[in-house]
Every structure is written in C-alpha cells, then in structure tokens.
Write a protein that binds this DNA or RNA. Structure first.
Length: 230
DNA sequence: ACACTGATAATCT
DNA sequence: GATTATCAGTGTA
C-alpha cells in the first residue's frame, strides 16, 4: 500500500514512446490520479494489457485511424477512452511514437486515495478490493468518461495524471497471460499483472453467445457465421 | 468460488 | 445487422 502523502514522480514523454510490450509491464505499480471538485481518487495499477495498434488484430486501431481511434495515433502520454458494451467506459495510456497507435489498457488497480469518493461512484460495489477491479470499474471509481478522451496524462496541470511509484515493483512478481474478452489474437500473452494482488481481475475468456436462448434458426445462422469467420 | 446471462449502444460491415 | 478490450445479478457448490 502506498503511504498517504507520498507524491508520485512525474515521468517524461519519451519513457512512453517505446515498445508497448516493454512499457505495459513497466506501468504496473504506477498511479493514476484524478482531481475533481469532489476530491481526489488515486489508483495503483495492478493489471494492464498491451495493444499494438496496426500490428494487432485485437486493437481498435488495427484497421487504421477512425473518429474513435484518432487519439491512439497521436503522441504518447494521452488517455484513449472508449465506450464498451453499451454502458461502460474503459481507458488506455497511449504509447509509441506520434503516428503509431499502441496503447496500454488499464485493467485493474488498488484505490490508494479517495476510497470514500470512489465508493460513492460505485454504489453497487460491496468489497473495497472490487472498487477498481476491471477496466470499466476502474474508470467508474476514478470518474473517467468520454469527456476525458485525449487528455494529456503527463502535464503538471492535467486533472488526470500518470505518476511513477517511489519504488519500482519487483519484476519477479509480474504475471502474464492472454488478454481478456477478445477473440482476435487471443493467443498473445499480452496481459500483465502483479501476481497475488487481490485487486487483479478474474480471467474470463470471451463470452460465447451461440447457445443463449436462441431459436433453431438463430443457432443455425450463428453457427454458420462462426464457420465463415474461421 | 465459479458459471451463466441479460443489459445496452457505439462502431463498423 | 453483428460484434463488442464489460458488469452485476442470479444460481449452483
């Protein structure tokens, strides 16, 4: 647990300009802090995933820049926020040089400051370890939404900042595995987490909706679709 | 603890 | 019209 009052260190933009597969695990232990008029909430990252832009079929940026993915193609150190499953916001740290589109999804963390405010933002949450356990929960706890897409995480005056911990995490504690909830490139072990931390989210393969309450016609149609996509 | 499923809308085909 | 970088609720153990 990060002691209250210990300020995180600011980092240089160049430290996020390299290979996303090196940056993603290095961000474990970093703190994301959001200051609003309601107060401050800070989350220490315990789980992230790497997305490699044009080189990664699972990345939103795989097919090139669109209105949604424009921020990912910009300079590193900005926040890419997307809307998921009709109700949730999720956030990424944009990495790599300007013009490329890799990013690190913030999958889970431990609330280290502002637990009361985070709890107020997450009324359905029963256990404190679940406050930011999951990418959409993390955004809820921090008060991050679509209005924050593109915000610079490295500027001193930004309301949302990414800060380095006072002591780096032990590299031996970093676990890896396949990314959660994706179908494309599901074999790439680009999820990184702090092994043994309670706030790491449970691994779940993508939901298979073929067998859910569908009629025979639906089952046939959807099975056909699955076969076509192979 | 783990499995299953409906909710819900932007995005892309 | 299908898919989706998810969550909370409900049910089973």
């Amino acid at each position: 647990v990060v002691a209250a009052g210990v300020p995180g260190r600011r980092i240089g933009r160049r430290s996020l300009a390299g290979d996303v597969l090196g940056i993603a695990p290095a961000l474990l232990g970093f703190v994301v802090e959001h200051r609003t008029e309601d107060g401050v909430v800070a989350v220490r990252l315990t789980e992230v995933e790497a997305y490699a832009g044009l080189d990664d079929p699972a990345s939103h940026a795989f097919r090139g820049p669109t209105a949604r993915t424009r921020v990912m193609f910009g300079p590193p150190g900005r926040l890419y926020v997307y809307f998921s499953y009709g109700m949730h916001w999720c956030a990424n740290v944009v990495c790599g040089p300007d013009g490329t589109a890799s990013a690190v999804l913030l999958r889970a963390g431990e609330v280290v400051r502002g637990a009361a405010l985070a709890t107020a933002r997450r009324p359905a949450c029963r256990r404190s370890v679940d406050l930011a356990r999951g990418p959409a929960r993390l955004c809820s706890a921090l008060g991050i939404g679509g209005e924050h897409d593109g915000i610079d995480l490295l500027a001193r005056a930004s309301p949302i900042r990414l800060l380095a911990p006072s002591t780096a995490v032990d590299a031996g504690r970093i676990g890896t595995g396949p990314r959660v909830g994706i179908r494309a490139a599901a074999d790439r072990p680009w999820r990184y987490f702090l092994d043994g931390e309670e706030t790491v989210s449970a691994y779940r393969p993508i939901a298979d909706r073929r067998a859910t309450g569908a009629g025979i016609a639906d089952a046939i149609r959807q099975t056909g679709h699955r076969d076509r996509s192979r």
